[in-house]
Each structure stands twice: as C-alpha cells, then as structure tokens.
Design a protein around this nucleic acid. Sequence first.
RNA 1: GCCGCGUUGGUCAAUCGGUUAAGACGCAUCCCUUUCACGGAUGAAUGACGGGUUCGAUUCCCGUACGCGGUACCA
Length: 508
Amino acid sequence: MSKKVRVRFAPSPTGGLHLGGVRTVLYNYLFAKQQDGDFVLRIEDTDQTRFVPGAEEYIFNCLKWCGLTPDESAVHGGPYAPYRQSERKQLYKQYAEQLVKQGNAYYAFDTAEELEQMRAAFRTEQNPSPQYNYEVRERMKNSITLSEQEVSTLIAQGTPYVIRIKMPQDEVVTFTDMIRGEVSFDSSLVDDKVLLKADGMPTYHLAVVVDDYLMKISHAFRGEEWLPSAPVHILLWRYLGWENEMPQWAHLPLILGPDGAKLSKRHGNKYGFPIFGMNWVDPNTQELTEGFYERGFLPQAFVNLLAMLGWNDGTEKELFSMEELIDRFDISRVNHSGAIFDYEKAKWFNHEWIKKLPVADYKDRVQKIFEENNITISDDNKFEKVLEQVKDRCTLLNDFVTQASFFFVAPKEIDTASIKPKWDEKKQQFFVELIRAFELTAIWQHDDLEKEFKEIAAVHQLKPGEVMMPLRVMLVGGKFGPGVFDIATIIGKEETNRRIKHTLQLLS
RNA sequence: GCCGCGUUGGUCAAUCGGUUAAGACGCAUCCCUUUCACGGAUGAAUGACGGGUUCGAUUCCCGUACGCGGUACCA
C-alpha cells in the first residue's frame, strides 16, 4: 500500500515547536494531502544531551491541536517503523562503512583538541572558520594519511573515531529545488562533514539520507537553513547508489522576527508575542515559553496565518480553512524570501476566525477560561447566546472574559469616575424612578425596556443619551459592551435592578 | 573572510516586459452606532543603487550595496 507521495517531517529535538517548525509541517501536510500521499513524522532524538524529555509528546500535542496529525510516526506506527532515530541506530553504521569501503568516506581519529589546534593554526582574518576540507584532511589523523596498518591498529586499540564524507574536489553539485529552481554548489568549498559520530550515532546528514531512502520519502521539505548542506546530502544519495530514488527538495523561506533575524525565543520575550504552538516548559531550566494556544488562538487562525506567511494563491483571498488550503496550496507559489512575522496581523486572523466560526466550535475552551477566572457557567444556552452577542469584539479567546463576564457575575469594579463629574440629583431621581418602573414591568424584553427608559427620561427632562452611559456603567462596570437593553434582557430584572442600586449607593 | 539565498509601502504581498504598481494588516480621517466593537468610505505610504538587453523594464542579464542563512562529533 505504498503511495507515491510520502513527505516527512523531523522536528528539532531541542524542545518547543515554533512558528517555522509548524509551518514546515503544515506545508508538508498540505502537499501530502493534496496528492493523497502519506505524511510521515520521524523523531530526531539521537543526542541525549540535547533531546529534551517530554519534547516528543509535546510535539504531538501541538500538531494534534493544529489538525496536523501524521499518518505514520513514532506513535502511530506504519510500514517503515521505527521512526525514532534512537531506535534505528544500528542501521546507519553499515552505510557509513560502505561509504568508507567505496572510498567516499574515511575514518578520522582527530581529537577535539587536535581539531581546535588545526582551526587555530589555519585561522586568519580572511578565514575565521577553517574547514576540514580536501586540503586540510591531508594533514590530519585519518585513514587517508595513515597506512592501512596504522588504521586497523588504532581501531583495534579502541581509539575513538568518526566517519567523514570525502568531498570531491572541483565538482559542481547541482539539484533542483521545488521553490528555488536550480541551485548549485562548488564541492571544493564544502567541508568533510562528519557522518557517524564517535558514539556510533549518525549526524543529521547521514540520518536524513538513510531514513528518507528506507522510508521511501518522495518529497523533503525543510527550512532554508539547510540549503548549504544540501550538496552533502545529494552526494550521499549518489554515493549510496540511490540517486534515482532521491526525494524532491523544497527549502522553505525562513520566518523572521521584527528585527529581520531568524525567529527565535528571544523575539518572543523581547516583543511579547508567542512563537511556540503551545506552552513549553524547559525541563532543565523550568523556563516557560507561552504558546499560541494559551494566548487564546484558534487552530484555524493559527494554521491560516502560518500558511499565508510565505504563500498566497494569487487572488485576494486571505481566509482559508484547512480544506481550502489543501485544495489551493501550491508549493511552486511559495515565496523565496524570508517573511517577518507580524503579531498584529496574526491577531487579525484570530479575530476573523472568531467572527466566522459558530461559537459552538470554541465555547468549551472559552468556558474553561471562564472557570480559570472563577466564573462557573451553569446555563449552557445562555452562555452560547452571550458569546454570540460579543464575539465581534474579541480578538483572542481570553477577551471573552472582559467582554462577557458581566453577564454572569456583577462587575467587581464600577467605573464611577466616568459618570461622577456629570452626576446630579436629577439623574439620581431618574434612576430611582427607573428601578420602580422596572420592578413593575411584567414582560422583560428589550423594546419595552427601552421605551420605558425613554419615557422616564422625558419626564425628568433628560436626554436619553445623558443617562444611557451611566446605566451602561452600572450594568457592565465600564464603557464597553453590546447594547444596554440587550444586556439587561439577558441578565434579567432582578440583577439589573440590583446593579443599579449598587452603583447608586456608590455614588451617594 | 568564504559559500548560498534574498531585496516591491512600517509589515504580509500581487504583477509571469506595456497597469493610474492590486489587496490585506497597522495607522489617520469620516460615516454608522446615545458606549466599545463590527460594518462602510476615504487617505498617507512601495519597486535598494548603477549599468546593460529592449520600442518599452518592478519584471530579463551583470555588477555594487544591504539583509539573512551556513561555515560544529547541533539539528
């Protein structure tokens, strides 16, 4: 049942899943879905010191929230399992050895100190970071400079070694990127990357190639930061004899912070917006990084804004559902340049989706937020009606608390300062009268309340506008919210009168 | 330094040689609204620079500048 299109995503193991990461998954997912292919998730957990506990589960939760559940993954299984790199460790070594035998790679015995010495020796102002390349390898301790005898002795003695790729000299490595077209590199300028580390674990370079081959990945999407190492990967595919099965590459443009540098946690802290999908607590430092979920973003909005950061369908349409994205997304229309993330626009997307979606789609989350603010919702029907009433005013889900809590509990603070300056005996009398009239009102409904209100105002020689604002403040606590009589209708006669009386007391 | 990728308003961006150079966010003004929003209208604001190619370049080519990315036994 192997399908033609299989795209793979391997999240960064350092913990936290940031905007760029989610967008890469999203584009992977969209592409896979529109070709009816498989979306594969491989976990890179090779390096014990860097792979953070809990990161894997966290990544799944994030993706699930966004609606990007993989078809094959470390938890879902599938024909090409295992997907966790640590569980595939034994696979890589044989390929590295094969490359050595073929003469495309070699053993290197240099210690960290020796490497540092080499770099120090070759470092000049013109060349601040010397590479382990075709020239340098001739002076180092490896199976090219050492005799076969010496090499086998060293290995027999248990000397730690790595396997490095032997980059050819003066060769132009060219490949076609789905986004950028033809890209080429001069092999002499790429260093001999380590393929297998001293602990027997593969580096990313070896692992992606071997895994993509074994997992029959047909399309590989990744961030633009990988472009410079693409020639290493291309050569590996060639040397391993798999070039005909090499995936098509797509190097996605970077997502940038407001200062134009690659988006990082630093930006989130500095500018006060989330950059992770969900809250991430670093288990080592206990540092909390807030997520879009916790900020009150809807998954539809999050996916939408990410999709539009570097892509558009050429029309003026900006609001896309996942289904519409699958339908319209086109990898060849992805921009070539990095995009600065604009949090204001991100909020706009959320606002649009809050307005667009029926409240039933998100009322459970809002209810939870209410409960966190010690407001219990007993009447589900009323809750839905209220949310419908105020959703146009909410940019983030958390905004519902300020915009709607007064429907359920009396406001804690009454902004009397805004009515006090123009307050007088005439108005005081008006409200006393209003309470009396309201108490006698048999049918408590919007139009009747407004009519009564206006009549009493006329009797007291007041313009409705003069007492409208005070009434609003009495009911909601401040100068905001939907129509006053809509509010009064929903909270009921008793509560309305209670709040008017309460404020009257505060004013006297 | 070297290599790679980029460069249209403050931001996201359309245009596949000929347009008054779209649209969106944000901003400003106005209308609507006896509040705040929503909605509607209007406005300010853009092709980095220099050379080519062409009847004609934002668009194609070259150079310069600038930005970003890479240059690890990290991914």
